[in-house]
Amino acid sequence: MRQLFDIALTAMLVENLALVFLLGMCTYLAVSKRVETAIGLGIAVIAVQTLTVPLNNAIDQLLLAPGALGWAGLPELDLSFMRLVTFIGVIAATVQILDVVLDRYAPALQQSLGIYLPLLTVNCAILGGTLFMVQRSYTFTESVAYGLGSGTGWAVAIVLFAALRERTRHCDVPAGLEGLGLAFIIAGLLAFGFAGLAGVAS
């Protein structure tokens, strides 16, 4: 249990996908002008990440990893080169299914998340989470903890960032720095702040 908690907390803070590995930056910079929209996107990321990382973990362990097909009598077969295309397929499918399910059972939530969900297929943080999971060969339960932790970390990062951007909206900055330029510099400062959490690991 403690180990799972460690994995989730490390994924959330020390190895924050957005601010330490700089993944999902396109959406991070594009959809962070308002805190409200950032919260919506953050929730969508948590949901998709918590679903896709364990799902891809199961598929990897049962089908794709070298020697994974031992149960089917084919221990020699190595399908690991199929990983990328399978993972992105699983992510795209999960996003679409989630969209349909939400539309059917929670239309209000779908209305608020609807526009962000399709964006997540091409969000590197989602695919990145899966790839880190494979690289570190997590077990299934560990991958649930990692998916939840890394998704939450990304959400926290974008909400913090959106709040900072809202604060600077009225600031008098040089014309060329206005908007995107300033956003980059704020993100850099925030990322350095997170880099300071590296010592928490042990």
Binding site: L19, V20, F21, L22, L177, G181, L182, A183, F184, I185, A187, G188, L189, A191, F192, A195
Partner: peptide, 11 residues
């Protein structure tokens, strides 16, 4: 460190 890239692209 990675964050320095933010500053460079920002500038």
């Amino acid at each position: 460190y990675a964050p320095s890239a933010f500053f460079l692209i920002g500038f």
